[in-house]
């Protein structure tokens, strides 16, 4: 067997669309760099970071984690449902996943509004610069992900669902790494 054929088989093993994986890896690198920078700056002021972190609502963020992983489960469930010919249930799963995405944004919006009401902005402390940058950028991905879920619920070919759900799982994956680093590590 030639080397080219061997490489092809390895790429063929990758589930879903190759370009979606390229996007997923790119996004993970961006957020990974952000989280690394956050912890690197924290080294210079651990007390200040801990005090700033105590102003966050960990319970709301914990609820958002439950919301997002449940949303990811529903998005993942849509593909086997669609492949089994249960088109209506697959669409329902995608719509439910997107609504949980909207709920995530509502909770996140309330969190941002609460910070603003207390006069906390991105210039208040280096912690909050990273907090707004990373969680805000993630929230933007959630908005985009919700739109993609609506799109694939409308155009519900199995390939579309697989690619759309993969983007949503990337958003989920970023959150499970971002949540503990920003909200929990003391």
């Amino acid at each position: 067997m030639s080397e080219a054929a061997s490489e092809l088989s390895v790429l063929d093993e990758l589930p879903g669309d190759l370009m979606m994986w390229v996007l997923i890896i790119s996004e993970l690198l961006v957020f990974g760099a952000g989280l690394t920078a956050f912890l690197a700056v924290r080294v210079t002021d651990p007390v200040g970071f801990a005090e700033a972190q105590n102003l966050l609502n960990r319970t709301a963020a914990g609820i958002n984690t439950i919301v997002l992983v449940t949303s990811g489960f529903l998005a993942a469930l849509a593909l086997p449902l669609r492949e089994a010919g249960q088109n209506a249930r697959a669409r329902l799963a995608l719509i439910a996943a997107s609504l949980l995405g909207v709920l995530f944004l509502v909770i996140k919006g309330a969190e941002f509004a609460d910070k603003a009401a207390h006069g906390i902005n991105w210039e208040s402390h280096a912690f909050f610069t990273f907090y707004y940058l990373l969680t805000g950028f993630h929230a933007a991905h959630v908005v985009f992900g919700v739109l993609i879920l609506w799109l694939v619920a409308w155009r519900d070919a199995p390939r579309n669902i697989e690619v759309g759900a993969a983007f949503w799982h990337m958003v989920d994956l970023v959150w499970v790494l971002l949540f503990p680093v920003i909200y929990l590590l003391q």
Binding site: I66, T70, G72, F73, L184
Partner: peptide, 23 residues
């Protein structure tokens, strides 16, 4: 679907443990 459900339950359990530890 069974594997996905198991994965989801695992994620819920791990998330709850993380939150309890942090609180």
């Amino acid at each position: 679907q069974r594997a996905l459900r198991t994965g989801w339950l695992t994620l819920m359990a791990l998330s709850l443990i993380s939150t309890v530890i942090s609180l």
